[in-house]
């Protein structure tokens, strides 16, 4: 997998603020960038993934569980 260009740590931030911040973060990226989103396990992860499904132009390249949080590697494909 390519190197991560930008990352955001959303641990401890409740829903839906974490989802809103994650989506804003992704929107600000350039096309073809890989980002790392760190997010709490459970509802935060699930809610974000549900919201991401409604967006176009993003692909989850990898997901790693790290105890009670997840590392999500997301490619911004562009239009």
């Amino acid at each position: 997998m390519r190197e991560v260009s930008e990352q955001i740590d959303l641990r401890g931030i409740p829903c839906p603020r974490n989802t809103a911040k994650a989506l804003m973060f992704l929107e600000a990226l350039d096309d073809d960038m890989i980002s790392l989103i760190i997010i709490d396990d459970g509802e935060p992860l699930n809610n974000f993934l549900e919201s991401l499904e409604l967006e176009t132009g993003y692909r989850i390249e990898a997901k790693e569980q790290q105890g009670n949080f997840w590392n999500l590697y997301i490619l911004k494909e562009g239009p």
């Binding site: 839906p16 603020r17 989802t19 809103a20 804003m24 919201s51 409604l54």
Partner: peptide, 16 residues
Amino acid sequence: SSSIHFAGVQSMKEVE
């Protein structure tokens, strides 16, 4: 903006 559906997230994005 506390709702977790797409509409709530849209409101929360404006807040953030």
